[in-house]
Design a protein around this nucleic acid. Structure first.
Lengths: 253, 253
DNA sequence: CACGATCGTTTTGCCCTACCAAACATTTAT
DNA sequence: ATAAATGTTTGGTAGGGCAAAACGATCGTG
């Protein structure tokens, strides 16, 4: 995120208010005011303005996010040209593997899940369309990091704040860089339970002929069904095939 | 939309800016400034603040909606408890009919499409998830209007501004009220090409045991494949069955 | 490649307005 | 029924949002 020189304070307030509504799933004036750290009156005016525009709706005295965001989300997705091309292949990955398959892109140094497809035995995770996470501890994240332009990778890594989510999480820049090198050689990135213990996965980037990274797809599942043999055997095979088809379709766009 | 007594002007500005980005699919400072009617400097500060929060991203000198909206959209959708229950039945409707099937809810007097499923021969329309339209000229809209609480219906109708989209569009309050009465008796609402000439459909509301309207589902298609016999025969039959299953599942929530 | 034109960004100062505190209205709890 | 808590509105003030202009970067063109 570039730092704004002259931020509009009132806008920042409103965004903070919206974030409280997002995090709580609906809140009342007093609760929002306490959370954001401003007076009740101020919060009320902000919520009223947002409501007038359909960004917030009021049920009784509880304010919630309005459905207008769904409209904006659709238009934001429009920017991802390869979306439609990708989803059908992710569906196939989920069906073939029986696991959870994901399509993720990078924005401002975060991985943003844009599509999920659940196979027969798919794990239940908190991942949803729009879910954001760090790049250094996921298969898709590392896949994208490994293949993006070097200067961008350096910039993103420089700003990373590593957090030890599980015993396997990489928390060192140079360990990460070594793994990225291995990923570039093999073409597949793995998550060996680095986000959630017992949850593993494999992913690969989607690139055009110039090498520009558009996103990544992955298959994730419990380690008990995804032993070494499968995780480094048929799963990468499925992913490679899917990526190949997607990349061919990109070219014709 | 309730009218705000003390709207926050700067927030309204920002929302106007976002709306320009939505409508244009990405714009530059000067263009946004002209469109919104404020100075370049002001627009720049707003965009910078939005960018800092991930709501807008900058590609070169063009600003576009950020993927953060996808996250917010997901949380907004959470409010619709029947969402997951409904989508699988809408999929079935699309497959059975081969046409386009929709799930729509009402918010602030507008119909908002929350899910679409395309059958084999589905028409290509501009309808997308998040798409908003008026209630008086669609099957889902009339279905919801017909079955909602009387006072709410009166209020919504009182604020309607009828527009003659096609020769068949209802533009008179009392003609609409008569049709709603017929819809309540039959249980199915029709769109006889009132939105787009040649595009017809049938829909029905989803209600709980108290009669509260949660939304509506519909099947729409070209009149050449949806003649009177089919539109008032097997199509309503499919819809009735789907609604029945959804309503049973609601009860168990 | 140079030059002008256009656009993006930053600065400045003024006027407005976003904010808080408090009063008032409404709802909730006991 | 009464009190306590919350939602909404009001007024005054100080901080900030705004337009205009200067500055800097970029684009297009001859």
């Amino acid at each position: 995120m570039t730092e704004a020189k002259n931020p509009v304070q009132a806008v920042q307030r409103t965004l903070d208010v919206l974030d409280v509504l997002r995090a709580t799933g609906g809140a009342r004036v007093t609760e929002v005011a306490r959370e954001v750290g401003v007076s009740k009156g101020t919060v009320h005016c902000h919520l009223a303005t947002l409501e007038e525009n359909g960004y917030v709706i009021k049920e009784g005295n509880e304010y919630k996010l309005g459905l207008r965001f769904i409209d904006l989300a659709h238009h934001a997705k429009d920017r991802i040209g390869i979306f439609d091309v990708t989803t059908s292949e992710v569906d196939t990955l989920a069906e073939e593997s029986g696991e959870l398959a994901l399509f993720t892109v990078e924005e401002e140094g975060e991985g943003i899940c844009l599509y999920t497809a659940e196979g027969e035995n798919a794990v239940r995770t908190e991942i949803y369309v729009g879910y954001r996470n760090n790049l250094y501890h996921t298969a898709v994240g590392k896949a994208m990091l490994a293949h993006m332009a070097e200067e961008k990778r350096d910039r993103l890594i420089a700003h990373m704040e590593f957090e030890q989510l599980t015993p396997r999480t990489i928390t060192d820049e140079y360990v990460l860089r070594e793994e990225l090198e291995a990923i570039r050689e093999e073409g597949i990135a793995y998550n060996h339970g680095e986000t959630i213990q017992g949850l593993v996965g494999a992913g690969a980037p989607i690139r055009d002929q110039d090498g520009t990274v558009y996103g990544a797809v992955s298959i994730i599942g419990p380690v008990r069904r995804m032993g070494e043999e499968r995780l480094e055997g048929e799963i990468p095979e499925m992913i490679r095939r899917a990526v190949n088809i997607i990349e061919i379709n990109i070219t014709s766009l």
